[in-house]
Nucleic acid binder design. Sequence first.
DNA 1: CTGTTAGCGCCTTCAG
DNA 2: CTGAAGGCGCTAACAG
Lengths: 356, 356
Amino acid sequence: MKGTRRPGAAPKIDIRDVASRARVSIATVSRTINHIPTVNAVLAARVWKAVADLDYFPNTQARALVSGKSKLLGLIVSEITNPFFPELIHEFEQVAISLGYEILIGSTNYEPKTMELCARRMLERKVDGVAIMTFGVEEFVLERFIAENVPVIFIDAASRQAPSDTLVVDYRAGIREAVQHLAVLGHRKIGFISGPLRLHSAEMRKQAFVESLWDAGITLNMAWMIEGTHTLDGGRDAMNYVLSLKDQPTAILCSNDVTAIGVQHALFEANLKVPDDLSLIGFDDVHLAEYTIPPLTTVRMSCKELAQAAVASLISRMQPANGKPEVPARAIIQTRLIVRRTTGLPKGALNDLSRP
Amino acid sequence: MKGTRRPGAAPKIDIRDVASRARVSIATVSRTINHIPTVNAVLAARVWKAVADLDYFPNTQARALVSGKSKLLGLIVSEITNPFFPELIHEFEQVAISLGYEILIGSTNYEPKTMELCARRMLERKVDGVAIMTFGVEEFVLERFIAENVPVIFIDAASRQAPSDTLVVDYRAGIREAVQHLAVLGHRKIGFISGPLRLHSAEMRKQAFVESLWDAGITLNMAWMIEGTHTLDGGRDAMNYVLSLKDQPTAILCSNDVTAIGVQHALFEANLKVPDDLSLIGFDDVHLAEYTIPPLTTVRMSCKELAQAAVASLISRMQPANGKPEVPARAIIQTRLIVRRTTGLPKGALNDLSRP
DNA sequence: CTGTTAGCGCCTTCAG
DNA sequence: CTGAAGGCGCTAACAG
């Protein structure tokens, strides 16, 4: 008897059961289910029938052990409760699953230590590749993956240590559009609420803003450059701070949508109206942005493209470089302004309509 | 030489390397790292030192293969983009990770077929247990897990097939509070936007509403019982439908928060004010509810408790029932009303203040 | 083209 | 208490 099976436990089927039922060797079964083309059609048919009859499916662990590939992809995000990430995860999952990969998700919560733990978890589970979709990565975290030879992809920069692909988001395009849009409306006093500035991508979004201001010929006022946290609370707090200022901006751009939603809330509490009292623009264009009150004008970044490019890169890097040279590829993710209803003329502009 | 290693590939170290460095057998290493207490302290110390020196960690796949436990927990949710679920996932992750488990997430998107696929993925990866945190489960999906002897836990009902624990959410408590709250304010015309009614938990929330109305002595008007989809769009559409009605309710309760947010949006578009024109109550109390405009009155359900109870049940069911009888446990999740600012007097009530 | 065989890295009896 | 040895289920040489 094959082990003691507890009552109710299903008799686990393995490759040998299939082999004997199909009257072939286990090697043939293995080849068949792995779609090795050199298998005799008749035998293959018998195998498939046995597989169906027995409702057999291969043991992933055993497979992983011997083949060295876990068919697991790591996905590290900043904070799963920020609605942008679930949307990203969703897209990532779609692609990964369709390619036969399972996903391991980790949230760093913006804490370097948690990021390190995530990395360790991924390594221990032997993921075949990792996408680090946070706003910045510590170099030493990358090194861990590179040392273990697992492909990594992350946003906004390539690693100097290894030939990894780069996912470059064109923040400039969308943010410039946003600033232009504001400028056309007549805004000259524009503030920016960033993400945590120690994070590289947060810094880049801010930079894109600074440059766009310059391009629009608008003076940068450092007093209106606030460091936020990319969270609802952070947006609210930042806005409350702005409200305490003597000289206030007439428009504010936020580094992400939840920050903007926090700002809207602070304004609501202060009995101020958007866009009458202040124009507001977000970044990401999460689905929710369409539903805020009023609907949020924001810069759209396609998380679908991001996810697809990330998976594609990982998968291609996992192939043992058959011939093609390992030139780092670079995927460019576009951004663009979606005008909804949180932007309008600067306060008091109506008095000014007849200016030369 | 130990296999051909590509340049840059780390020399993978295994239990044997540790054993030889610690001058013990691999069995001793295994016992040590698994904290079997019968290991000689001196040898154990040598092992731990070797482990540290070599930065060794056991291969999860091999471990899973031989031990039969993957240390993987499945978590099936309805829709990851509904903010309630990320919060749930976050809590679930906290507990699971701290117990040494990794999570496999699957979203059903309310599609039975996708649910089935999720179940299959979980089975193939040999999860040690599955939490199905959707609003309903097809019986045949459960059977799959039960047949494979993997512990399952899901919301609102126990399986009749196997001794599984039950997670019962006390919808009544919170929803009754909500209805009372509305009744006290003077509402008699209260509508309800449910989730998809083929889903058991959605149906239960609706039932709780119906009973609460009855308890409050308020007449149920079937025209105001709308079936929604538990999404932003569904909430908006449902509200637009309500607005087309001749006789309209003065208050609406929603089966979840995103539905309520959709409703708020529809109202905004229709130039109607909350709570002046309509009182609104959600369900879940996602973090975002505090940030809607105005902040949403809602029924709080602790996803932390839910997550903890789910993991606890799964883990306990995985133990080979040492002695204790397998009596199904039941965890009761409480709900309660959080009053914010989407509820007020019914429209026109001011004219009525002096009624006997 | 098919079958036999040797591990993948680890846990776990079973002798010592 | 420790070590040697036999698999877990599968893939990948290697023979036939």
